[in-house]
Computed example of a mutant assay.
Amino acid sequence: MELSEEQRAVRDVVREFAEEEIRPVAREADTEERFPEDVWDGLADLDLTGLTVPEAYGGYDADRLTYSVVNEEVAYGTLSVATALSVHCLATSCIATFGSEDQKERWLPEMVDGRPVGAFALSEPGAGSNPAEMTTEARKEGNEYVIDGTKQWITNGERAGVVVLFAKTDRDDPGSVTQFVVPKDADGLTVGKKEEKLGLRASDTTSLEFDGVRIPAENRLTEEGKGLSAALSILTGGRIGIASQAVGLAQSALDEAEAYAGEREQFGKPIGDIQTIRHKLADMATQVRASRLLTRDAAAREDRGESPRMAASMAKYFASEAAMDVTNEAVQIHGGYGYVTEGDVERLYRDAKITTIYEGTSEIQKTVIARELLD
């Protein structure tokens, strides 16, 4: 998929930022499980925290292909930062797409500048792949909603100042899921423990506890019962973002492996001269390119006004599984050096796994693809 001159310029700027500002701090941030806030401020300076905000509110208002390119290049730096950015953009997308004029004016101009950070609260301890099973409830009382429940796996859970929340207005009615905006400092809203994760360790992932949280009725984003369809429509675009991140991560691993193969010598020659290694790199490069093409095709379909549902699921499924394969082979090419933390490929390997899980597992993507094909 050919990029426009402007898109190539954006790609080059973000790649330079990833190489000069993100990659140098990625290992330390992973080890310390600390989000690099200076990097976040740098993204804001590049207008990337307003990527999905309309220009009328100070945003970048990127088309989906540009959004894909940005996600790929930020993930080339480190997936933890790319994930935080994509979730922030999910939150701003929800407000921009479903919010009233007053809601947009209230939240978006500040979120464009990266503060407050956005969070997206859909999953629960007992409701992951099937959000209709959620139990979080928002009861209408006069001109307020009172929220009780627990959300889990919330990226930006500690850092966020704004939470886009999905809750039922009737806990016993699966069709009552509704979307709300909740300020993080609302009374009764507490942050649970920070999860200790295999990868994505610089990104904060927590639960959120809602205990009698009261918000004004004007903070409701969708009509009652329209929240689940809204979530699914937003997540289709989000899957293109995750596929893009998987491509960027895999490209990073491929570049590391290619460089190592050229400098590491065994049996009196670079290991890149050994056919087994050459074939590994050929397979890896093919998977990265195929992933990128699938992902950009899905993005371009959305930009043309076509339904990207199946293409997005294909891209997310293929690119995330390819990222697992490519990072695995990168570790193998590095041998013992790939297994220790002084290099980057073991972190890339750990990070890759989450791309097959969040925003719809690989199994869910195959279910969506099959449904589009057969039903």
Rank of each mutant, 00 (worst) to 15 (best):
E144F: 14
D255C: 07
G58N: 10
V39P: 03
G157P: 03
G128T: 13
S123H: 02
R34H: 03
G248L: 13
N143F: 08
P270R: 07
M314V: 11
P125H: 15
W107H: 13
V213A: 12
K280W: 08
Y317N: 12
E55Y: 05
G58K: 10
I95L: 07
A26S: 14
L348Y: 14
A315G: 09
F166I: 06
R15T: 07
A352N: 06
S4C: 11
V74M: 09
T78K: 07
P125L: 11
A282F: 09
E33Q: 15
E2R: 03
L249E: 15
D185S: 01
W107L: 08
T31P: 00
Y317H: 14
Y339N: 04
S123P: 07
F98K: 05
A250V: 08
E101I: 08
G338D: 14
D255P: 06
D30P: 00
L3C: 05
L348G: 09
E137A: 03
L90S: 05
Q365E: 13
T169N: 04
R289E: 12
D283H: 10
L108C: 01
A56F: 13
A44T: 11
D170P: 03
G241V: 01
R201L: 04
D148R: 01
H279Y: 09
G227F: 12
F17Y: 15
K366H: 10
V53K: 08
K184T: 03
S313Q: 03
G248Q: 10
E28A: 15
A26G: 12
G225T: 07
D375G: 14
E144P: 01
V25P: 02
K140A: 14
S244D: 02
R278N: 13
E133F: 09
L165K: 13
G161D: 09
R289V: 04
L294V: 00
A18H: 04
N71P: 00
M1E: 13
E55F: 12
T276Q: 14
K269E: 13
D344H: 02
A18T: 01
R371Q: 08
A26Y: 15
M134P: 00
G99T: 03
L208V: 01
T276R: 13
T31Q: 08
D61E: 15
E223V: 13
P270N: 15
D170S: 11
